[in-house]
Design a binder for these strands. Structure first.
Length: 152
DNA sequence: GCCAACGTTGGC
DNA sequence: GCCAACGTTGGC
């Protein structure tokens, strides 16, 4: 059992979208960074906890909680030449990118990036480090606990 | 829109 | 394998 922070642009997929989707299950596709892919492919397991983070928006921060409920499996968008996630170097035989399934658990109040920076227990979070851009990052149990407490 | 930081590409 | 150039991310 591990914990993750996953970034999403709310214009693309917001916490509301995730909570409103059938069975609250959403396919997570379009990750095109090897480090993030490796987390999905090698480490994520069903039941892992997810901090759902809104990025590239007026108020970036954690907007809800979710969990991993499926995958990994090949990301279909890598084979779709019409998709902005198309990858010409990926083949059916040798897929390059994977998807996982996420299920929304709850929409929470927004724990903004600015507020997160003020909390000592969170200072080592990868997402708070200077220059950090990874869309999927591991979260420690202590960080998860502190955040869940703040969101109650 | 700016720009710092990081990742990827490709020439050599 | 090095590294400059370029592209992307994402907060502000």
């Amino acid at each position: 059992m591990q914990y993750w922070l996953m970034k999403s642009e709310p214009d693309e997929v917001s916490i509301d979208d995730v909570m409103a989707s059938p069975n609250e299950t959403t396919a997570w596709f379009g990750v095109r960074n090897y480090q993030a892919r490796n987390f999905m492919r090698d480490q994520m397991q069903d039941g892992d906890g997810v901090l759902f983070y809104h990025s590239s928006c007026p108020e970036p921060g954690i907007a809800g909680l979710a969990q991993i409920v499926g995958g990994p499996y090949p990301d279909a968008s890598q084979f779709d030449s019409k998709s902005k996630y198309y990858d010409a170097k990926a083949t059916q035989e040798q897929p390059r990118w994977v998807s996982i399934d996420v299920q929304g658990t709850q929409k929470t109040r927004l724990l903004s990036l600015a507020e997160m920076r003020t909390i000592p227990a969170l200072e080592d979070m990868i997402v708070l480090q200077k220059g950090s851009r990874l869309s999927i990052t591991p979260v420690t149990p202590a960080q998860w606990k502190a955040i869940v407490k703040l969101l109650k």
